[in-house]
Amino acid sequence: MKLQTRNLTHILTSLLLVLCAVSTTAAQDTGVLILAHGGSEEWNDLIHEAAEPLKANHKVEVAFGMANYVSMHHGLKALEEQGVSKIAVVQLFISSYSPIIEQNAYLLGKRDSLPETPMPLMHHVDEYKEMMGIEEEETAGHHGGGHRFYMPKNLQPIPLEAEVVLTPALDDHPVVAEILNKRIQELSSDPANETVLMVAHGPNSEENNKKWIDTMESLSQKIQSTQADNGTPYKQIFALTVRDDAPEPVFEQAKANLRTLVRQAGQNGEVIVVPLFLSSGGREQAVAQRLEGLDFEWSGKTLLPDPLITDFIQKSVKAGFAEMN
């Protein structure tokens, strides 16, 4: 009997070691590529800091840019060169309703065509041409806003050896609602008497803008539900986009709508304005500048820095690999 017990113990121990080895190998076999807009050194550092904890279990790379072929290519190849065969691509963008998200999907082979309005290369233009063997100077490009825009004539998906899963943008994820409510609470003293304006950048197209607003209103409902559970909801929450990159008449109308809403809400209570931007880089401060001369509470704090963004990345990776398996 003792011999049988020793043999059983030996078998179980061996099995446990094998399972641990398989688990370790599986973790080493997985990679994470984080996509984000990119900005100043401080902006980019906040993304790297949010991604750092994932390195305990996965190889991690970050690709900055708006669906930039070169930065995405480098990030994916860096992971493949480290022996990664499965990659979760996490999109740290505010909304899924954008040509950036559509082009990300195309470049990763998850969509058959480019978006109706493709995203040009704003960085790494010469490197792209060298990668593709383009010698002649194509005319599909221009300079603007300090950037050199270049739209390849025949942009193709990135060649991949690893299996890739693409996870959704931030959208109305509960983590986003929780962070936004923290930002609001820092400015709040009497919720029942406060109108909150949640303000995001927004897209150019009317169709996508409606979807942005719908998603933001979903965030508003989550925030109000939390407030109700904890005592007092806010008087009301409005969702708006400033549409900085839209044609001037659209931009001016968005600006007028924002000012009008702040002015009217302020006649019957306090007004809190919170930016729905990923990281601090100047764009969010333009919201406050647009409201010059009006009374409202404002901190300018964006989603980052906040450890909950790391939670979002981790949850996205877990869901992505579960979908893949």
Score class of each variant (00 low, 15 high):
Glu163Trp: 02
Asn181Pro: 00
Ser188Asn: 02
His143Phe: 12
Gln156Arg: 11
Ser188Trp: 13
Lys182His: 13
Glu163Met: 05
Val176Thr: 03
Gly146Ser: 05
Arg183His: 14
Pro157Val: 07
Pro159Phe: 09
Pro174Val: 05
Glu161Leu: 07
Glu178Leu: 06
Pro159Ser: 14
Val164Arg: 09
Leu160Thr: 09
Ile158Arg: 10
Gln156Leu: 07
Gln185Lys: 15
Leu155Val: 02
Pro159Glu: 12
Val165Phe: 09
Gly145Asn: 10
Asp171Cys: 08
Ser189Gly: 09
Pro159Ile: 11
Gly144Ile: 02
Ser189Met: 12
Val175His: 08
Arg148Asn: 07
Ile158Asp: 13
Gly146His: 06
Leu187His: 06
Pro168Trp: 12
Leu166Glu: 04
Pro159Asp: 08
Ala169Ser: 15
Asn181Arg: 14
Asp172Ile: 02
Leu187Tyr: 11
Leu160Asn: 03
Leu180Trp: 05
Arg183Pro: 01
Arg183Asn: 15
Pro168Thr: 08
Gly146Glu: 01
Ile179Ala: 03
Asn154Val: 01
Phe149Gly: 01
Ile158Thr: 08
Lys153Gln: 10
Val176Phe: 04
Glu178Ile: 00
Ala162Lys: 14
Gly146Thr: 03
Val164Ser: 04
Glu161Ile: 05
Thr167Cys: 15
Ile184Thr: 12
His173Trp: 08
Glu163Arg: 14
Pro157His: 01
Met151Arg: 03
His173Glu: 09
Tyr150Leu: 01
His147Glu: 05
Thr167Ser: 13
Met151Ile: 00
Val176Ser: 02
Leu170Ile: 15
Pro152Gln: 05
Pro168Lys: 03
His147Thr: 00
Lys153Met: 04
